[in-house]
Amino acid sequence: MYNILIIFLTFLKIGAISFGGGFGMIPIITEEVVVRGWMSEEEVLNFIAISESTPGPIAVNMATFIGYNQGGILGAIFATLGVVLPAFIIILLIASILKKLLQYKGVNAFLDGVKPVVVGLILSTSLTLFVKIIFNVKAIEGASFKFDYRSLIIFAIITFVSVFVKKVFKKNLSPILLILLSGVLGIVFFYI
C-alpha cells in the first residue's frame, strides 16, 4: 500500500509542476523515476518511445506504464490519477470562474498576449517535426542527414488528400480518417 501511495504522490507532483504538455513532462518524469531507482534511464527511454507512438496523451501513457511497472494494476490506476488530478482541479477552478475572470480587462490582456505565442508554438512544433522526421535529424551538431523520402511522400499524399477534399467537396476531412490512411500508407511504404 505504501508503495502505491508513493507512486500516486510522485505523479501528483509531476502533474502539478510540469508545464507545456507531455513533452515538457518527459525530463521531469525521467529524473523522478531514475533518481528513485525505479528504472534505468534506458528503460525510461524505451517507455517514452512507446508512449509517443501509442495513442493518447503522452503524460497518461507514461504514468500508466511506470505505474504498472512499479505497482501492478493499482499502481497504474493511481499513477494516472495522480498525473491527471492537478490539471483537472486547476482547470475546474478556472473554468468555474472564467466568466467572471474574463470581465477583468487585465486577464483578457494577458490571454491576448499568450495567444500569438500559442499559435507560434503550434506552428514551430510542426516545422521542427518536419525537419526531424523527414530529414531524420535531432540536432544540427552531429547531423547525419538521412533524407527520408518515404515519410515525405506520405506527408505529401496526406496534405493533398486533405486540401483536395476541402477544395472540391467543401468538407473538412476528419483527422481520424487521415490518421487511418497514413497508417495504411506507412505499411505500404515501409513494410511491403
Partner: peptide
C-alpha cells in the same frame, strides 16, 4: 511501419 506513416500525418495535423 504503420506508426512511421502516422508520424508523417501528425506533422500535417
Amino acid at each position: 511501419s504503420a506508426f512511421k506513416g502516422i508520424q508523417a500525418c501528425v506533422i500535417f495535423l
